[in-house]
Deep mutational scan, measured.
Amino acid sequence: MTTFKLIINGKTLKGEITIEAVDAAEAEKIFKQYANDNGIDGEWTYDDATKTFTVTE
């Protein structure tokens, strides 16, 4: 398992979430479901060097 981080730069929600996932594809699926569940819709980026996803509304 690898640790992945999501940085949320939303209009109403900001913060960071860290999860353990098998790979970046699994982490992205989990993070996008979390964002969808919380009404966050924005532009996604991923930095493989730091294993960090960012979503900006």
Rank of each mutant, 00 (worst) to 15 (best):
residue 30 I to T: 11
residue 49 A to Y: 11
residue 55 V to T: 06
residue 12 T to H: 13
residue 40 I to G: 01
residue 21 A to N: 14
residue 20 E to F: 08
residue 28 E to C: 02
residue 41 D to R: 09
residue 2 T to Y: 11
residue 27 A to M: 01
residue 2 T to K: 07
residue 52 T to V: 11
residue 25 A to M: 10
residue 35 A to T: 04
residue 49 A to I: 10
residue 14 K to C: 01
residue 22 V to A: 14
residue 2 T to A: 15
residue 16 E to K: 01
residue 41 D to M: 06
residue 20 E to V: 13
residue 56 T to P: 01
residue 17 I to S: 03
residue 42 G to I: 00
residue 5 K to R: 13
residue 51 K to I: 09
residue 11 K to S: 07
residue 55 V to Y: 00
residue 53 F to H: 15
residue 48 D to V: 05
residue 55 V to A: 14
residue 4 F to E: 00
residue 21 A to F: 15
residue 42 G to Y: 00
residue 49 A to R: 14
residue 30 I to K: 08
residue 40 I to A: 05
residue 18 T to V: 07
residue 43 E to P: 10
residue 15 G to P: 15
residue 56 T to E: 13
residue 12 T to I: 12
residue 57 E to W: 03
residue 27 A to R: 00
residue 9 N to K: 06
residue 23 D to M: 13
residue 6 L to S: 09
residue 5 K to I: 04
residue 10 G to H: 03
residue 8 I to M: 15
residue 35 A to L: 06
residue 3 T to G: 03
residue 20 E to D: 15
residue 44 W to S: 03
residue 52 T to N: 14
residue 38 N to P: 01
residue 47 D to G: 13
residue 31 F to Y: 09
residue 10 G to F: 12
residue 45 T to R: 07
residue 34 Y to A: 08
residue 34 Y to C: 01
residue 7 I to E: 02
residue 25 A to R: 03
residue 36 N to Y: 14
residue 3 T to M: 13
residue 25 A to Q: 12
residue 5 K to V: 10
residue 8 I to N: 04
residue 20 E to Q: 10
residue 1 M to E: 13
residue 38 N to C: 02
residue 21 A to H: 10
residue 9 N to Q: 11
residue 13 L to K: 02
residue 52 T to K: 11
residue 51 K to N: 03
residue 16 E to N: 04
residue 20 E to P: 09
residue 2 T to W: 09
residue 39 G to L: 05
residue 15 G to W: 09
residue 49 A to V: 07
residue 55 V to N: 03
residue 38 N to S: 12
residue 48 D to M: 10
residue 48 D to A: 08
residue 10 G to T: 12
residue 8 I to Q: 03
residue 57 E to R: 01
residue 43 E to Y: 15
residue 19 I to H: 09
residue 30 I to Y: 07
residue 19 I to S: 10
residue 14 K to I: 07
residue 8 I to C: 02
residue 8 I to T: 09
residue 37 D to F: 14
residue 27 A to G: 11
residue 52 T to M: 12
residue 56 T to K: 08
residue 30 I to N: 15
residue 35 A to C: 03
residue 37 D to Q: 07
residue 10 G to Q: 10
residue 30 I to G: 09
residue 48 D to P: 06
residue 57 E to I: 03
residue 35 A to F: 00
residue 23 D to L: 04
residue 4 F to T: 01
residue 39 G to A: 06
residue 12 T to W: 12
residue 9 N to A: 04
residue 5 K to M: 04
residue 35 A to Q: 09
residue 6 L to E: 00
residue 5 K to T: 05
residue 28 E to W: 10
residue 44 W to N: 00
residue 42 G to S: 00
residue 30 I to Q: 11
residue 23 D to A: 08
residue 26 E to C: 02
residue 12 T to N: 15
residue 27 A to E: 00
residue 19 I to R: 12
residue 2 T to D: 10
residue 35 A to M: 11
residue 33 Q to S: 14
residue 1 M to N: 04
residue 29 K to S: 12
residue 14 K to H: 11
residue 28 E to V: 09
residue 26 E to V: 12
residue 28 E to R: 09
residue 40 I to L: 12
residue 16 E to G: 02
residue 54 T to Q: 15
residue 22 V to K: 08
residue 30 I to L: 04
residue 38 N to V: 14
residue 6 L to V: 03
residue 24 A to E: 03
residue 1 M to D: 10
residue 41 D to G: 10
residue 41 D to I: 14
residue 38 N to I: 03
residue 24 A to Q: 04
residue 45 T to Q: 10
residue 53 F to G: 01
residue 21 A to K: 10
residue 31 F to I: 07
residue 4 F to P: 00
residue 35 A to N: 08
residue 33 Q to E: 15
residue 25 A to Y: 04
residue 37 D to P: 01
residue 21 A to C: 04
residue 22 V to G: 08
residue 45 T to F: 07
residue 21 A to D: 11
residue 43 E to V: 12
residue 19 I to N: 14
residue 46 Y to A: 03
residue 2 T to H: 03
residue 6 L to Q: 00
residue 54 T to C: 02
residue 12 T to G: 06
residue 53 F to C: 01
residue 32 K to T: 10
residue 49 A to D: 07
residue 50 T to C: 04
residue 26 E to A: 07
residue 37 D to S: 04
residue 8 I to A: 04
residue 25 A to C: 02
residue 45 T to V: 13
